[in-house]
Amino acid sequence: MSGLQIPMEHVLALAGLLFSCGLMGLMLRRNIIFMLMSLEVMLNAVALAFVAAGAQWGQADGQIIFLLILSVAAAEVAVGLGLVLQIQRRFKTLDMDQARRLRG
């Protein structure tokens, strides 16, 4: 398993692309489930960047950060999906533009 020689920029550019996609989804979608998915994509993109950096130096640290990101994503999804259920119950919709009770 050795010999993958590609420019770092390409990997990081890919991570950036994925991140931007997630960001765009977050801003674009009104359904909270899609927003959560976008968040997953963004986290995943960041994780990719860390793993790539770890790969460049041949160190384990990148993967460890990936692990931490993974646990953050798991916790976030667990709580986030619980919230989704509550929002559906309270507002009878998943449209975040409708759930605007925090308006000042």
Binding site: E9, F19, C21, M24
Partner: peptide, 24 residues
């Protein structure tokens, strides 16, 4: 999102390197 991507790519230009390919 496009602007942010552009900025990220601009930032990447300064770090020319390759992946080592060494398995961890």
């Amino acid at each position: 999102a496009a602007i942010l991507l552009l900025e990220l790519l601009l930032a990447l230009r300064a770090a020319p390197a390759t992946t080592s390919g060494v398995a961890v």
